[in-house]
Simulated scan of single mutants.
Amino acid sequence: MWLPIRAWAAAAPGAAKTVLVVGDSLSAEYGIARGTGWVPLLGARLAQRYPNYRIVNTSISGDTTRGGLARLPALLTRDQPAVVVLELGANDALRGLSLDATEQNLRAMARRSLHAGARVLIVGMQIPPNYGRDYAQRFMQVFPEVARSEHAALVPFLLEGIAADRSLFQADGLHPVASAQPRLMENVWRALEPLLQTP
């Protein structure tokens, strides 16, 4: 389902640095109230601990790595981010798209972000083995491979700590409920905070 949302931003007055989130429905608050997703929660954490940073969320439900790559150049020009968080790839796998293409797209996004002067955080995902064990294993490896080759930071698995608990997901079994979002935020925060401290 393609449900574009408006960019969400939270910043202290005079904030000079942007954390740009380019993601899909897992970052776009699909099926939950606005302001309860992990990205707004991350924005609140930044406001408390790193008020010189702000969050800009450009995530779109249903987006793929190809879509993110197409959108990224304009976002880099517009927002001039200090950090780019790439949370894409799940929809590539759900559609059975070429993982070589997924990897190439993620790598191109990382390189463009780095070339624009941003630090990069790759957010990893996993899919159930019913998609095919080899495909699922290869998909899981895409994210650390790109992070390693492009010298980017990595969240190994966005849904770490909730993936096995069905009560933390909406009826579709794919999207976490609001009560699970703080855990997602913490998973991202552990990898993001060192980037905020980098000169």
Rank of each mutant, 00 (worst) to 15 (best):
A152Y: 07
P40T: 02
L94E: 02
L41P: 03
Q137L: 14
S113R: 05
E150F: 06
H151Q: 15
S98D: 14
A116L: 08
E193F: 11
L46V: 04
L158P: 07
R148D: 13
S27R: 10
W2G: 15
V142I: 10
K17I: 04
G68E: 01
M109P: 05
P13Q: 04
V155R: 03
Q181V: 01
S179P: 05
G96D: 13
L97K: 07
E145L: 12
G23D: 02
M140T: 15
L195K: 09
R6H: 10
M185Y: 04
L192Q: 13
L20R: 13
E160K: 11
Q48S: 12
G43H: 02
A70L: 15
V123R: 06
V120H: 06
L88S: 02
S179L: 15
L86I: 06
Y131H: 14
M1F: 11
S25A: 09
S27V: 01
W38F: 04
G132Q: 09
G89L: 01
N130G: 13
Q137P: 08
P144V: 08
R95E: 00
S59P: 03
A171T: 12
N187Y: 01
L86H: 11
H175W: 05
V19D: 04
A15F: 11
K17Q: 15
R66T: 15
R66D: 15
T77Y: 11
Y50N: 12
T198M: 15
S59W: 00
L72C: 05
P4S: 09
A108I: 06
L69W: 04
E87D: 13
L41Y: 02
L154H: 10
L121N: 07
Q197C: 11
W2R: 14
P182Y: 13
V85W: 08
R107Q: 11
Y135N: 05
M109W: 12
G62A: 07
P144R: 00
L69C: 08
S61T: 02
A44D: 12
L26E: 00
D63F: 04
W2M: 15
S167H: 09
A28I: 10
R107C: 07
E29T: 00
A153M: 03
G132V: 05
T65S: 14
A101F: 07
Q170H: 10
D63S: 09
W2L: 15
A15D: 14
W189P: 02
R71S: 04
A152L: 01
N57S: 00
Q141E: 08
W8I: 04
L26A: 00
S25C: 04
R166Q: 10
R148A: 08
R166D: 14
S113C: 12
L42I: 08
I5V: 14
L168P: 10
D24Q: 06
I5E: 14
L121H: 10
W189S: 01
S25G: 02
T77K: 15
G117C: 06
V83W: 01
P81F: 04
A163C: 12
L99R: 13
T102N: 07
R133Q: 13
E160Y: 03
M140N: 09
M140P: 01
